[in-house]
């Protein structure tokens, strides 16, 4: 994909705590912090597990499968050159109840998105001159087998 076709995005600052989330896409992986002692997934990332206070938390790849918990179709141009409309959603990852991300649902007619829809992760590559490469995890409808 040519760079000019990549949608306008506010990119995240790549911090040590969150770098895994924004770079796992290079390997096709959605990476979420997980407590290595009790197995609990943490999002947004934190350095201490809220369940057992363990500091032994490391990124792990999850399946990338999720369900749309709720969504909104945005029509407002908050910045210049935005492609409208687009769908913002909260998706629940299948690995753990209430393990949710804000994301966008793509490769789908915006008006066809619905609560409960099964989706899977896909990545959008950005090259940032200061921070280097990052991959924004987005979600798309699960393709029928």
């Amino acid at each position: 994909m040519a760079e000019v076709d990549v949608p306008v995005r506010i990119l995240p600052e790549l911090t040590d705590r969150a770098r895994h989330f924004w770079t796992g896409g290079e390997f096709g992986e959605l990476r979420i912090l997980r407590c290595q002692d009790c197995g609990y997934y943490l999002h947004p990332p934190a350095s201490v597990c809220p369940k057992d206070r363990s500091r032994n938390v490391l990124p792990e790849a999850v399946s990338g499968r999720a369900v749309v918990a709720t969504y909104t179709v945005n029509y407002q141009a908050w910045m210049p050159n935005m492609q409208l409309p687009y769908v913002v959603a909260l998706v629940s990852l299948v690995e753990q109840p209430e393990l949710r991300l804000t994301t966008q649902i793509i490769n789908c007619e915006p008006t066809k998105v619905s609560t409960g829809m099964e989706v899977s992760v896909t990545f959008e590559h950005h090259h940032d001159e200061i921070q280097g490469d990052l991959w924004i995890p987005l979600f798309e409808p699960v393709k029928e087998a």
């Binding site: 995005r9 990119l11 910045m79 913002v88 994301t103």
Partner: peptide, 19 residues
Amino acid sequence: TENQYATGAQQWTSPYGSL
């Protein structure tokens, strides 16, 4: 759009156009 990164809580929403 000039060189402004999303930080803090908004790093989880702004990249998705949840602005």
